[in-house]
Design a protein around this nucleic acid. Structure first.
Lengths: 351, 351
DNA sequence: CTGTTAGCGCGTTCAG
DNA sequence: CTGAACGCGCTAACAG
């Protein structure tokens, strides 16, 4: 069968304990000669100790879980990459879980992760109102960090966030800069913390500028390209938009992610509205392909990969008991102006 | 501390064995009453058995590893999603590993996975020449399936592939259809099986049509957008391309993946070559955003998600001993014509 | 139908 | 410096 620590011990003519000691690089407790001899045997035999058995004995599985909505979304792919890289440097394994933002799937995954005895969980998943999953985690005494997903109780939790309100403000300030601007804000699902914060940012600018209700329309999509497309198209149709009459119900679109922005652009193009001349568009995320679109998508950049690596680093800190009290890290987004917005220069000129 | 099966047993006034039996839903061996009683205790106490301990006892970790180059690449993201979904349905956990196509990283990950005692590995990673990782896997008696990555010895291995040669032929046949066509083929890294097969496909059509050497130029990129851009631009410059003289060194580009195709498009646009009028472009993969580009990218569709789910299903079969002899599944790619190619209709008309 | 006894492979005392 | 013995939490025979 599989070779074990006992086999190595027998071959070396020593006891399992000694082999264990060299396996774990215990500084002392083994003679230099015996150590070399055992190491040699391990080398030639290609022996690998069982992490499972070790986990049982030490209570450390050396693996963590990561729950995200969907790896297929480029934003999460970046985040996962950041997590994975940071984790791997510390020799940790990563269980990947796609929840599709379903609270039920998320619960099942948490159950799975607990069974796997992960040492920690990074969570970015379903809605914000139900936090029973976190209770389960806490009851089982397994630490977690929230990535880009604030929830009510998260004030007491560890988390890595991006300042969504600030990001939304950046976009809103740009789009509301010219007088007579009318914005369509395609927000994410209403129950998400990100959505609430971004909406707060938009409304903050809206109020500061003293605009009227006709100048801001907010709808909620589900982050898919299709929803951005359908929602935009519906509004266009409902308003009885006629390209010849140039009666566009808005001249600016701010979308809570790039993918929906792309959907919106598709709808706009379909009805013959030009971008950015007639409608300016700003997305959120800055996925890799955003600058490859035509016109290249202006957007609010989120440091997704960094959010992942910081989350992982924070979790590792907690696991190593280096971090007693809850800590929150906030990363800053940036406005990236490209082809779907009129240039700043042009705006200056018009003044 | 953590509650264990022994605690439950004590509370129920039975032995650990009995609890274990209801935990594993052993059809018989437990009285209906006792079973209900134990189930109730488990429910209220929220007890979850340790998969680690179970793994040690049964030799089944109920988790598998997946090694891919980079989750950030949309193609792999799709594949991972397929794998994860299929695995999760069977209650398996997934260790995700990004190798960056580095043989060393790949080896380290395999070591990690062996320590984790995964029950199987799905592999799509580094070059094709070194197969010592597979030997390690075999020596440790852990089954694996190759996903979209044929290697020399893979004839004897389980694998799920897409017919790359056929896919390349589809593209080449289209692009070589009109007389006087000159194709630039941006292939992937030369050592990859996919690259070899695609090149074979292109050359097969090339020979069948009896074309001359001036009509096909093959270069190797590394699947990044930047490489597609740089390589295309270099060729354009080396030929002393002058937009006014209309001396384009090729009128068709076939790229081994969509991302490089996008890079090539960027280069073409930069020098003022129109797509598809002056240069037709076909990519490979059909990533989600391909049809959102302007013009929408024509490409060879690969069923990446299905490749993932089929790989996982196959691996599970093997794990369950249902699949004694090596099996190979080949999926078929499809040519998707969109805006970067002149339409078929137009070609018909010109005849 | 249920309890007892042994391990699974490793880490960790505690003697020697 | 080293070995024997025990335990991690659970499953799997084997008894009763």
């Amino acid at each position: 069968m599989k070779t074990t620590i006992a086999d190595i011990a027998k071959q070396a003519g020593v006891s399992k304990a000694t082999v264990s000691r060299v396996l774990n690089n215990k500084p002392e407790g083994v003679g230099a000669e015996t150590r070399l001899k055992i190491q040699e045997i391990i080398r030639v035999t290609g022996f690998q100790p069982s992490g499972v058995a070790r986990g049982l004995a030490t209570g450390k599985s050396h693996s963590v879980g990561l729950i995200i909505p969907d790896i297929t979304n480029p934003f999460y792919a970046q985040l996962v990459r950041g997590v994975e890289d940071a984790l791997n440097q510390s020799g940790f394994g990563l269980f990947l879980c796609n929840s599709d933002r379903s609270i039920e799937k998320e619960k099942n995954y948490i159950t799975l992760l607990i069974e796997k005895e992960v040492e920690g969980v990074i969570l970015n998943s379903a809605g914000s109102e139900c936090d029973c999953q976190l209770e389960t985690l806490e009851k089982n005494n397994i630490p977690y960090v929230l990535a880009d997903r604030m929830i009510e109780r998260s004030k007491k939790s560890n988390g890595v966030y991006v300042d969504n309100q600030y990001g939304a403000r950046l976009a809103a300030e740009y789009l509301f800069a010219r007088s007579g601007s009318k914005m369509l804000f395609i927000n994410g699902p209403a129950d998400l913390s990100q959505s609430k914060q971004r909406q707060a940012g938009v409304e903050q600018v809206f109020r500061a500028k003293g605009l009227n209700n006709g100048q801001l329309r907010i709808i909620n999509g589900d982050f898919t390209q299709e929803s951005g497309y359908q929602l935009t198209l519906k509004i266009l149709n409902d308003c009885g938009f006629d390209h010849n009459r140039k009666n566009l119900p808005f001249n600016a679109v701010f979308s809570a992610n790039d993918v929906m922005a792309i959907g919106a652009m598709r709808a706009l193009r379909q009805v013959g509205a030009s971008i950015p001349e007639e409608v300016e568009v700003i997305g959120f995320d800055d996925i890799e392909l955003a600058h490859l679109l035509d016109p290249p998508l202006s957007t609010v950049f989120q440091p997704s990969s960094e959010m992942g690596s910081r989350s992982a680093a924070l979790l590792l800190q907690i696991i190593n008991k280096k971090n007693p009290r809850p800590k929150t890290i906030t990363l800053m987004p940036e406005l990236v102006l490209r082809g779907t917005t009129k240039t700043q220069q042009e705006k200056e000129l018009k003044k």
